[in-house]
């Protein structure tokens, strides 16, 4: 099953969707959005690509196996909490720098946590979607 319309559209949609997912991730720092919904958007983008161009191509394009993303995400999320412990606060306390980044706002460990969530969601959803799509 290959559709010219879908595969052409996907070629342009994929980067836009991925960028939008990162936007959601960063925006979630202070506004509605966040790692989960960002991750879902990214996973949906890859799933769209898998539908348009086949699961094999999608796996190649991912660079990493989804479970690697899942593992890295877990390390990021749990590690972000540990940073607070090294500073003497209870686990998962948010640590903030005074540095203001344009469009993101103050940087802090919650952003690292959110990146972890993003990766976990992308990894987990793609693992399942690619598994289901493979016949």
């Amino acid at each position: 099953m290959s559709s010219l319309v879908l595969s052409t559209a996907t070629r342009y949609l994929l980067p836009v969707l991925l960028m939008f997912s990162v936007f959601l991730l960063i925006r979630g720092h202070n506004e509605p959005g966040g790692g989960f919904v960002g991750g879902l958007t990214a996973a949906a983008a890859f799933a769209l690509f898998a539908i348009a161009s086949g699961v094999e191509r999608a796996r190649q394009m991912l660079w990493f196996h989804p479970r690697t993303l899942l593992g890295t995400g877990l390390l990021f999320a749990a590690g972000a909490g540990l940073l607070a412990v090294t500073a003497g606060s209870p686990y998962m306390t948010g640590l903030w720098t005074s540095f203001e980044m344009p469009a993101v706002g103050k940087l802090g460990t919650p952003l690292v946590f959110d990146v972890g969530v993003y990766l976990v969601v992308v990894g987990m959803v793609l693992m399942i979607v690619l598994e289901l799509a493979e016949e």
């Binding site: 690697t68 593992g71 390390l75 749990a78 412990v85």
Partner: peptide
């Protein structure tokens, strides 16, 4: 000190994540 309560959760979390990364 209070990390001791969390260690039984964190140790398997990190172990599981590391096992995922070292799949091969």
């Amino acid at each position: 000190m209070h990390l001791i309560v969390l260690l039984p959760i964190l140790i398997p979390l990190f172990t599981a994540a590391a096992c995922l990364l070292l799949w091969k």
